[in-house]
């Protein structure tokens, strides 16, 4: 495990903690897209199908459990918690899951490392993760007021994949036979989707003003 990979995982973990902090302390999910959160729950379910069959390390298993558990609890809070669910902007969060999931599934069936159920699901999870942020970005554009925790959550989520790119470069250079085109390409697309957001995030940080995306 290299420093880029560890930092990436910790950034991912921090993004989840920031979101849960918002939900637990402010009892609010305002500005958060349930569609994106549901897509993440699907992403981790499909990717971690090997959790019971392939033991990699204690760290690996624990992190998988954390990402599965937190993604489903966030969805539960947003849908069913009697206070939290009231702050959900249902009318603004209109992106349809199927328009993201169907093309990803077709692509996973066509382009994969091996045509088995587990492999196709693993591949599908990467394609879907790459675009899962789109409902959130659309919601962000529509929401005029982006609170600090929401901004930080999305920044950390984007930073996590960007750091994974450094990890992939590092591993490609240092490890023989380390080639994973599917995570690389979808990870690159995923990071590029954050480009616009990063730009405005840094601008607001530099000028010390509240984050606002142009209409």
């Amino acid at each position: 495990m290299n420093i880029f990979r560890l930092t990436a995982d910790m950034t991912h973990l921090m993004s989840v903690i920031v979101l849960l902090l918002k939900i637990h302390t402010i009892k609010s999910c305002a500005g958060i897209s349930l569609k994106t959160q549901e897509l993440y729950a699907i992403v981790f379910t499909c990717r971690y199908l090997d959790i019971f069959t392939d033991f990699i390390s204690f760290y690996n298993t624990i992190m998988k459990v954390i990402f599965l558990w937190t993604s489903f609890s966030i969805v539960w809070y947003m849908r069913y918690h009697k206070i939290v669910r009231r702050s959900y902007d249902k009318d603004q969060d209109t992106f349809r899951h199927v328009f993201l999931m169907l093309p990803c599934l077709v692509l996973a069936l066509l382009i994969n490392e091996r045509f088995t159920f587990k492999e196709v699901m693993w591949t599908f999870s990467f394609y879907l993760e790459a675009v899962a942020i789109l409902p959130q970005l659309v919601l962000l554009q529509r929401t005029r007021n982006i609170d600090n925790l929401t901004g930080q959550y999305i920044f950390l989520l984007g930073a996590y994949r960007a750091l994974y790119i450094l990890n992939w470069i590092y591993r490609y250079v240092t490890e023989p036979n380390y080639v994973h085109w599917i995570p690389w390409m979808s990870g690159l697309v995923q990071t590029l989707l954050y480009g616009d957001f990063f730009y405005y995030y840094f601008l607001s940080w530099k000028n010390n003003v509240k984050l606002q995306l142009p209409a």
């Binding site: 990979r5 995982d9 991912h12 990699i56 390390s57 690996n60 080639v179 599917i182």
Partner: peptide, 10 residues
């Protein structure tokens, strides 16, 4: 061809 067994990333 990728090494299928090296899926140690999250």
């Amino acid at each position: 061809v990728a090494n299928i067994s090296s899926k140690d990333e999250l």
